[in-house]
Structure formats: structure tokens, C-alpha cells
């Protein structure tokens, strides 16, 4: 009996210790519009000259990996799915748990969107719960990015624009890879510049995407360019 208790203690220590040994490495995302912090109820001007007021901005980031410059340093987050939602500022910051110590510099890798395997694996919980408003109901699949707002350039009712980007099936697989080199921080600040997304959009003619298609793939590629390391 004592032997069992002893083994049990060793087992418990083995489970608990990795959590203590490492200090969390925190990722903090910051939404911007052309270098200015994104604020509510404010219009911004795009490079095309359209005024836009983003109201909804929700985005799935998944598959976080860190490749360190020190040899052999590699980290991969398990269950790596994060939903960033402008309405919930806390969602823009999260730790990468269990990251090994001694990280100085390297490359942060992640995906904008949800991979195809997860897309066909049925109901999921947490960030992937289909009640989060990021799942198409009439046709299965996650919405990788939702950006909605108002632009006077839109001739639609209430001047609304709606971009729901997603799609996991070829040829309209919209998932994008993002790689960001960085160095020497415990908190890694990543900027998301929404103006980059609007750089090549003519809001007068293009005001909505609501399903997987060629344009969704193109705009997802543009969206992947929004990310950059602040003060690298």
C-alpha cells in the first residue's frame, strides 16, 4: 500500500512540476488602424479614401508555435485555438503555457483561421463552440475572420459592410500562415493593423462576403498581412 502511495506521489509531482518550472510567456495583441490604437465609435480613413467604422472584429488564431534561435528550441501549444473578439478585450492577451525557459529570440508562427481537420471533426467546446457566432450554420465550416462595420461609401442599407471570411475546402481554403520574427521579450506585443485589410478593398463596390469563395481566400491573405511585432 505504501509503495502505491509513493508511486502516486511521484506521478503527481510529474504532472504538477512542469507548470511550476516555467514562467508563462504572454502574447498580447493590439488592434490598430494605421498606427493609431483602434477605438470604438470612431471613423478611420482607408488608403482608398473610404471612411470606415469597424464595429465587429472577431478572429480565430490557431496552431501557435515558437521556433527559437537557440538550437533545438521549439514549442508547440496544445489545443491551440484562440478567438480574439473586440467586444472582449481580455481575449487579446493569453499566455503560451509550458514554454521552455531561455527563449531569447525566434519566430512566432500561427494560423489565421481554423484548419480543415478541425472543421470536419464535429462539435467542439471552448473557443470553438459553435455558439460563438463564428460558425456557418447553413453550410458547415468556421468563419475565420468577421469584420463588420459602417462606411458611408457603401450604398447598402445603413451603409454596412460585412466580411465573413472562411472556407476549408480546396480551392477555397482560406486559412493563412503567419510568421513573425521577434527577439528578447517576456511579453510579445503583436500589432493588428486593420488598415492593411482595407488597402485593396473598394467599399463602393465590395461590401460583403458571406461564404467561402475566391475573394474570401484573397482577403484572408490580405488579413494575414495585418500582423506585425511591435517594437521588434
Amino acid at each position: 500500500m505504501r509503495m502505491i502511495l509513493f508511486l502516486y506521489c511521484i506521478f503527481l509531482t510529474a504532472i504538477v512540476s512542469p507548470l511550476h518550472a516555467q514562467e508563462a510567456f504572454t502574447l498580447a495583441f493590439h488592434p490598430f488602424f494605421q498606427g493609431e490604437p483602434l477605438e470604438n465609435d470612431r471613423f478611420y480613413v482607408t488608403e482608398k479614401g473610404d471612411s470606415v467604422m469597424p464595429e465587429t472584429f472577431k478572429i480565430y488564431l490557431s496552431g501557435f508555435e515558437v521556433k527559437g534561435e537557440n538550437p533545438g528550441f521549439y514549442y508547440k501549444e496544445t489545443e491551440s485555438y484562440h478567438l480574439l473578439d473586440l467586444e472582449n478585450p481580455a481575449s487579446f492577451q493569453f499566455p503560451l503555457r509550458g514554454i521552455p525557459e531561455g527563449l531569447q529570440s525566434g519566430v512566432l508562427h500561427f494560423q489565421l483561421g481554423i484548419d480543415s481537420l478541425t472543421n470536419v471533426s464535429g462539435a467542439m467546446g471552448g473557443a470553438l463552440d459553435p455558439s460563438k457566432g463564428m460558425y456557418w450554420t447553413w453550410q458547415s465550416g468556421y468563419i475565420n475572420l468577421k469584420l463588420e462595420g459602417i462606411s458611408p461609401s457603401n450604398k447598402t442599407r445603413n451603409h454596412e459592410f460585412q466580411f465573413h471570411l472562411g472556407g476549408y475546402l480546396s480551392p477555397f481554403n482560406a486559412v493563412q500562415s503567419v510568421d513573425l520574427p521577434f527577439s528578447g521579450q517576456k511579453t510579445l506585443d503583436v500589432g493588428i493593423d486593420l488598415s492593411v485589410f482595407f488597402r485593396n478593398i473598394e467599399l463602393k463596390t465590395q461590401k460583403s462576403i458571406m461564404s467561402p469563395c475566391k475573394d474570401a481566400v484573397y482577403l484572408s491573405g490580405e488579413a494575414a498581412k495585418m500582423f506585425y511585432i511591435l517594437n521588434p
Binding site: 472543421n119 470536419v120 471533426s121 464535429g122 462539435a123 459553435p130 460558425y135 450554420t137 447553413w138 453550410q139 458547415s140 465550416g141
Partner: peptide, 16 residues
């Protein structure tokens, strides 16, 4: 074949 998994099927009629 719009729905790719039995779990996801009910979302369509509930929201339509």
C-alpha cells in the same frame, strides 16, 4: 452535402 458532420446538422434547421 452542405453539412460535414452529424453534430453540425442541427445548426441549420435551428437557425434557418
Amino acid at each position: 452535402g452542405a453539412i460535414n458532420h452529424l453534430d453540425m446538422q442541427a445548426l441549420a434547421p435551428i437557425t434557418h
